[in-house]
């Protein structure tokens, strides 16, 4: 009952359990040292209050051993706290390789989520219990922070750069989602919920009214922005083929080698000149201000899905006009 009163947000992720154990350890260690100091303070204040003359009164000694003792003694527990804390932290920010990425776009004052399977949601995030979920987070404006107390995780959403955190829900339920980095007028309204479901229910939810996968939407983005004009399998293409690119190391013109991840793809779309692939010219126009973060994410998902031979041929999607469209009489009537 009392425990409920002071500790009512249950840990509902694998990380949460680790954080709670760590907290318990800290409370015990710090609590006992704090209690020791408090007891000594009280005891000395009462025992040595004025009027109570102690039996022997030696002059103040300078016990160096005692000084060095309490200078060095904290190092032991500190080392344990540090290593344990670092372990929990590194685990929370190193996703397992099989974690599926879910994309998070934060803006004043809402959370937008895109699942790779195609579902999109605002301020609500559905996740399966017992499966790792990796979040790739970005902001469209100021800094926000993705915070789910029940999962004991926290990650800032930065403008201009992806950050990442992962979790694995352990219990079904609906949990708070808060923005914890102050972001303006309606900061306190930038909240939502995370709904952890049984994997089977989650699968049902994913399939419900789905309008195609994120990669499929990315394909439309790819065609909409005419990426195909250069990134084609055509022998004379002016830009690299994107098939099988994701996760590979890319040698750049200036000698650097970068890993093709979401961040690389995003930068290459917005500011292509910064990272020209070796063997190509700086001919791609920057798409900064032309394309939304959500479209970039979709395009990135599409590029991830591209397997050898998957690049569409230009003819297939946008057949060139062969003749002037005939004007129908009703169109003319309508125009009147």
């Amino acid at each position: 009952m009392l425990a409920e009163l002071i500790f009512w947000t249950p840990g509902a992720s694998t990380t949460a359990q680790q954080v709670d154990w760590l907290l318990l350890f800290l409370v015990l260690v710090c609590g006992s040292v704090g209690l020791l100091v408090a007891v000594l303070l009280f005891y000395f204040c009462i025992r040595y209050r004025r009027g109570r003359v102690p039996k022997e009164l030696p002059p103040t000694k300078k016990p160096l051993l005692l000084e060095w003792g309490w200078t060095l003694a904290p190092l032991g527990p500190f080392a344990v706290m540090y290593v344990w804390g670092a372990h929990v932290y590194l685990t929370a920010y190193t996703p397992p390789p099989d974690a599926t990425p879910t994309y998070v776009v934060a803006k004043q004052w809402m959370w937008k989520f895109q699942h790779p399977e195609g579902q999109r949601e605002i301020n609500t995030l559905h996740v399966p219990v017992g499966q790792p979920v990796k979040l790739l987070i970005i902001s469209e404006d100021v800094i926000h922070s993705f915070f789910v107390p029940a999962f004991r995780i926290h990650m800032d959403a930065l403008p201009g750069r992806y950050t990442s955190v992962w979790f694995q829900a352990t219990q079904e339920g609906t949990y708070h989602l808060f923005c914890s980095q102050y972001c303006g007028t309606d900061h306190a309204g930038m909240t939502g919920q995370v709904i952890a479901m049984k994997p089977a229910d989650y699968q049902k939810w994913l399939n419900f009214e789905s309008d195609g996968s994120l990669a499929l939407r990315g394909r439309q983005v790819f065609l909409k922005y005419r990426c195909l004009s250069c990134h084609s399998t055509n022998a004379h293409a002016r830009a690299p083929v994107l098939e099988g690119l994701f996760g590979k190391s890319v040698p750049l013109k200036d000698g650097r080698v970068v890993k093709a991840d979401d961040g690389y793809i995003r930068r290459s779309i917005l500011k292509p000149s910064d990272q020209i692939v070796a063997g190509f010219d700086d001919v791609m126009p920057p798409f900064e201000g032309q394309i939304t973060e959500e479209e970039i994410i979709a395009a990135s998902a599409y590029i991830q899905s591209l397997e050898p031979g998957g690049t569409p041929s230009r003819v297939e999607d946008y057949p060139p006009p062969t003749k002037t469209p005939a004007i129908k009489s009703e169109d003319i009537d309508h125009a009147k």
Binding site: L22, M81, H87, Y89
Partner: peptide
């Protein structure tokens, strides 16, 4: 002393990632 001790909680990475902000 109390405040300083809770500072140790925040210096511990695994706790800070939950109670930050």
């Amino acid at each position: 002393t109390f405040g300083g001790m809770t500072g140790l909680f925040l210096a511990t990475l695994g706790v800070d990632m939950h109670v930050h902000d």
